[in-house]
Design a protein around this nucleic acid. Structure first.
Lengths: 273, 273
DNA sequence: CCCTCACCGAGTACGGTGTACGCGATTTTA
DNA sequence: TAAAATCGCGTACACCGTACTCGGTGAGGG
């Protein structure tokens, strides 16, 4: 029988301390910390192997004693930056989900490179797993069943990821514009003007001059509220609503928008005509 | 006086056809198409300048006559892949938003590299702008005001971006696992097992063995339904609900989760249990 | 106790990337 | 027809991740 067992184990199964030789001068955590520091301040692409090694006062190839490939560096960075903070379930689904989402957003904002990396690869680091376990426990503590929990968590995570990503892009653009404010406007202005002047974009130009977009924080929480409305409606818990239960995947028969957002009478005349 | 006007114009303002010299052998669109083709089949990182040039049967540096930097190649790729399809507003907010979201998802699924690129830079290409204008028009056609339109569109776009990104990662993992199914499991299995065996992850292990996650399509539409519930509740339109209107940012009083998610009476206990 | 061998740190080197520069050929304008 | 503008593109450089290789270090087994 062909022995296939030489498939290299995942980074997390590698023991940190060697059995025999001299003690390593560094550690995965230390390397990850330096990399995170660089990535936070100069961008993820500045966190090259050589740059990290230079900061550590060591040779580039030395790092490969700790991390077999660049991808593993990312893996460890992600898990390190993700960190772990416990969260006690209050039993109030809305409150708990809000806490959960806001924390997640904070982490992403603290490390602008994290969201893109996290979004494009499967993550199974210990910190990440602990966070997952915590989130599951929190939702279970709110009275949700396992299936609902998974759905809700998925929904929240996706939304936070998407929203924060948009926010980060906007922030990056703005801050580049902060250093280069003049140049940026100078580059974009004529193009935008030429576009809007074609008359093909009536709504867009109206938006540009009319709409106040508001602060990022505010927009995030507003969006979250709306999603929570939807969640609470479909997954009622002890701390919430009546016992009526509509399972996932059921839009509610023909009438889609069943509910008034707040306690309103909901004199619903949905989608008539 | 220092002339600042030498800040290079955005790629979209560069005229395609030169005024004087010999006719170019290629075009931005052609280059972008080739790049998209490569990126679709071999991944975005395979779409290197040299690789594209080789496919075009030309020298690498030739491409720089058309696109001043790699970043501009991305810009053009994004706009090309985004494309543009008109959409007539039906006046039904829910239906229109669904159409809009599903289409957006389809585009992202067709070009797996698109979502990550789109998410990390500001986009102003003509196709993208046309799409934005169309979306604004659609929502306006549903009776939403400008501010609400912007909020709703933001919410939907963020959600679609986040959800599709998660879906793509999962798909990429699965397909790598398709080629390498054995190796992948062999790598991950022992680690996962060792983690779960610690007993620190009761909910996680329960999830692993109990929960059916369901198809991606289904999950997407389910999530969308929930969000649409929230949106319809807060932004009632002619085709929708009662006239009660709660402005953005108002949770409905001091108590965060104080509200019955759906109006109690609302006899409609569809699919109760 | 010392030998041995696993392991460390790190230099060198290779194939890849994006792209600055420069040169000769080609076409349009004056 | 001369001049100007633009094209295709080869060469070269800095930077990237990393395979290979080496001599030095220090703990374990005899």
């Amino acid at each position: 029988m062909t022995v296939v067992s030489d498939s290299k184990p995942i980074i997390w199964m590698r023991p940190e301390k060697p059995a025999r030789g001299p003690a390593p001068a560094h550690s995965r955590g230390q390397i990850a910390a330096v990399a995170i520091d660089i990535a936070d301040s100069e961008g993820i692409e500045a966190a090259s192997v050589r740059a990290i090694a230079k900061r550590l006062g060591t040779g580039a190839m030395t790092l490969y004693r700790y991390l077999p490939a660049k991808e593993d560096l990312y893996t460890v960075m992600i898990d390190e930056a993700t960190g772990f903070e416990p969260q006690e379930p209050t039993g109030d689904l809305r409150a708990d989900l809000t806490t959960l989402a806001l924390r997640r957003r904070q982490i992403f904002l603290r490390h602008p490179w994290l969201a893109p990396l996290l979004a494009t690869r499967p993550i199974m680091g210990p910190n990440f797993m602990r966070g997952m376990e915590r989130d599951l426990a929190v939702l279970a503590g709110c009275g949700l069943g396992m299936d609902d929990t998974v759905h809700v968590l998925n929904l929240i995570h996706s939304w936070v990821g998407g929203a924060v990503q948009a926010e980060l892009t906007e922030r990056a653009t703005a801050q580049q514009s902060g250093l280069d404010r003049h140049a940026w406007r100078l580059r974009m202005e004529p193009y935008l003007k030429s576009l809007l002047e074609t008359g093909e974009f009536p709504h867009l130009s109206q938006m540009v001059q009319a709409s106040e977009i508001g602060e990022a924080d505010e927009r995030f929480t507003n969006g979250l509220e709306i999603i929570l409305d939807g969640i609470e409606a479909r997954f009622p818990t002890a701390a919430g609503t009546d016992g009526s239960r509509r399972p996932v995947g059921d839009t509610g028969g023909g009438a889609p928008s069943a509910r008034g957002a707040n306690g309103q009478p909901t004199a619903r005349s949905s989608t008539t005509e």
